[in-house]
Design a protein around this nucleic acid. Sequence first.
DNA 1: ATAGAAATATAGCCATAGCTATATTAATTA
DNA 2: TAATTAATATAGCTATGGCTATATTTCTAT
Lengths: 132, 132
Amino acid sequence: MSFRKVRNAHKTENTEDYLELIAELLNSKGEARIVDIANELSIAQATANKTIQRLHNQGFIKKQPYRSIFLTVKGQQIASKSKKRHNTVLKFLMNLGIDQKTASADAEGIEHHVSEKTLKKMEKFNSAKKIV
Amino acid sequence: MSFRKVRNAHKTENTEDYLELIAELLNSKGEARIVDIANELSIAQATANKTIQRLHNQGFIKKQPYRSIFLTVKGQQIASKSKKRHNTVLKFLMNLGIDQKTASADAEGIEHHVSEKTLKKMEKFNSAKKIV
DNA sequence: ATAGAAATATAGCCATAGCTATATTAATTA
DNA sequence: TAATTAATATAGCTATGGCTATATTTCTAT
Ligand SMILES: [Mn+2]
Ligand SMILES: [Mn+2]
Ligand SMILES: [Mn+2]
Ligand SMILES: [Mn+2]
């Protein structure tokens, strides 16, 4: 049963990372460009472009050809939920005593495999610690 | 930087799950059959067969056509390391207060994204708690 | 205004992991 | 032993996400 859940998580995690990153870029730079996404993810621009097309087809993204990218409401919802969850996991790892760099790296993968129940426990753990 | 690490983890995690499972089957039933692997992973037998062929080509598995499967030394090493890590993560989640079922499901995904440093912290946390 | 640079898009390739349908071999049972 | 059932293998399809090379469009500077 668990393996099926993990496979489902893997289907959505690339989407989650893209949407979270796009939201961050929109927030910090005012626009999200494919070239920035490719840089942040350390992938080729053609790869980023292809995935962006998929996200557009799936209704997560608004865009015009050759223009920068925006989130639909559907996309925003996933982005903000993912960001919150990411932050909880990151703080949790740091509260466990892990250095910021390692915690960042691990959180990037772990975040997609944390259930609601586990997330609640992490939040509780964070509340009892320094980094909240 | 982190995203590249996560992608690398995803490249190896299916391999790790297969080898860990094969080791378990060899241990409990004396042999590992493709039909059992497919059942445990909740995938079609053809899919399991194809991945087993890949693992064979990559030197993790010994096999004869139409016969059950064994691990090479290389395969055994990854299996035992993965099993140990899996166990640490599972115990850690349970020590955090998560029920066994949820902890099992989450551990199946999280295990592949845990660095050596984080693993050490989890072990330390486990030592201070009940479930070791 | 236009040439060159930068960004985006597309084409065509690879690997992986899913699936169903079908063929082949092995194991069981009548 | 022969027929049936079970297991394994193969073929052919889909989707995803990597890559490089090249085309197209937009932006920037001269
Ligand atoms: Mn994230
Ligand atoms: Mn992530
Ligand atoms: Mn796993
Ligand atoms: Mn993962």
